[in-house]
């Protein structure tokens, strides 16, 4: 793998044509493979160190599959995920799983469900210390010391180390999960809906914690979420996914102030605002596309008000626009005039 060094800083992560297809089998005894579900299809993006990239989409958009394929929690079907590991570009998709173990401390995940992501039969201390034990990074009093420091850092009391997860509330459990992910000093964190299961008042605490930790430790986040207001708050750039593909990727301000893809626009208008003076104004009809049964052209075409014949026949490519922005829409040129009236 030859990655040329340029003047610009090297991305921490380069995702190139990442695909994850799940086979579909016929019914019956022989179970022949009759097709694939393209859970995530041809995903491309770069991630700079210290950046937070939001991965946004509705159910079935493939955002979780993409996140897990990047960390190789599931093996991708095709594509490259190039991690810049101590100035060594390493393709995570090709690497043998034994070598993968060495890279694990470098990239971690925070899960959505604070109830199922912690082993109910292990104490907090065992959960937080486990990464260090697996990688033989610390022993004895040093281990206990690091666990205590980490627990303090995420806002847990070290004296609660001998308790089991069920003794904690949802927000505190999520802090335990964060402590487990951060104790090895990773560079890359994939937050898979890390705050969606939490109550509003606790959600704000966890968002603040994630932001503080990012500043303090220089973390890079991939923040998978369906809640756009949270994404706007925490992300530098946002990739919007629909039916397994990225349909628009741009800086957070561009996405939220001037969405170019009709789906992004619809998604933004669908968020109910807590201000009663800002009525919801979403005109999108129809159902979220089923990745197992996609139309031949643009997956969004059946719901799109601007569709043309071309949209129904040909899948649009992700095209570069000014400001490092990419949009996958045939109607991309002159879209602003036709979509946003006045």
């Amino acid at each position: 793998m030859n990655i040329k060094q340029k003047d610009t800083p090297t991305p921490l992560l380069q995702v190139r044509g990442l695909c994850k297809y799940f086979p579909v089998y016929s019914k019956g005894f022989l179970r022949k493979q009759i097709g694939v579900v393209k859970a995530s299809d041809n995903i491309n993006f770069n991630l700079m160190p210290g950046e937070t990239l939001g991965l946004v989409g509705e159910s079935g958009s493939g955002k979780t599959t993409t996140g897990r394929s990047i960390l190789r929690a599931i093996k991708p079907s095709a594509g490259e995920v190039i991690l810049n590991y101590k100035n060594n570009p390493i393709d995570l998709t090709k690497i043998h799983h034994k070598d993968l173990k060495k890279l694990r401390p470098y990239m971690q995940m925070i899960f959505q469900d604070p109830f199922s992501s912690l082993n109910p039969r292990m104490t907090v201390r065992d959960i937080v210390a486990e990464p260090l034990i697996i990688h033989k990074m610390a022993k004895g009093s040093e281990l206990e010391d690091r666990v205590s420091r980490m627990m303090k850092k995420v806002g847990l009391k070290p004296e609660h180390r001998t308790r089991y997860p069920h003794a904690f509330s949802g927000g505190q459990r999520q802090r335990i999960g964060i402590a487990r992910a951060l104790i090895m000093n990773p560079a890359l964190i994939v937050c898979d809906e890390a705050v969606s299961a939490l109550d509003v008042s606790v959600q704000a605490q966890v968002i603040n914690l994630l932001q503080d930790l990012q500043q303090e430790l220089g973390l890079t986040y991939i923040f998978i979420a369906h809640d756009l207001s949270v994404v706007k708050h925490i992300c530098d750039r946002v990739a919007v996914m629909y039916a397994g593909k990225i349909i628009e990727i741009a800086s957070t301000n561009d996405i939220f102030d001037n969405p170019m893809h009709p789906y992004t626009k619809a998604l933004l208008s669908a968020v109910p605002s807590p201000d009663p003076d800002q009525p919801m104004n979403m005109s999108l009809s129809g159902e979220v596309a089923d990745p197992g049964n996609l139309p031949p052209g643009c997956a969004f075409a059946p719901r799109c008000e601007l569709r043309s014949d071309e949209c129904e026949q040909r899948i649009p490519d992700l095209e570069q626009k000014p400001n490092g922005r990419y949009v996958a829409c045939h109607r991309g040129t002159g879209l602003r005039d036709s979509v946003i009236p006045g």
């Binding site: 509003v200 606790v202 207001s229 949270v230 706007k232 925490i234 605002s273 807590p274």
Partner: peptide
């Protein structure tokens, strides 16, 4: 509540749970 019309600042939150 993080809102769409808000900038990237620290969220005021209710302490504790």
């Amino acid at each position: 509540l993080p809102s769409l019309s808000m900038d990237k600042t620290k969220l005021p939150s209710i302490k504790g749970s």
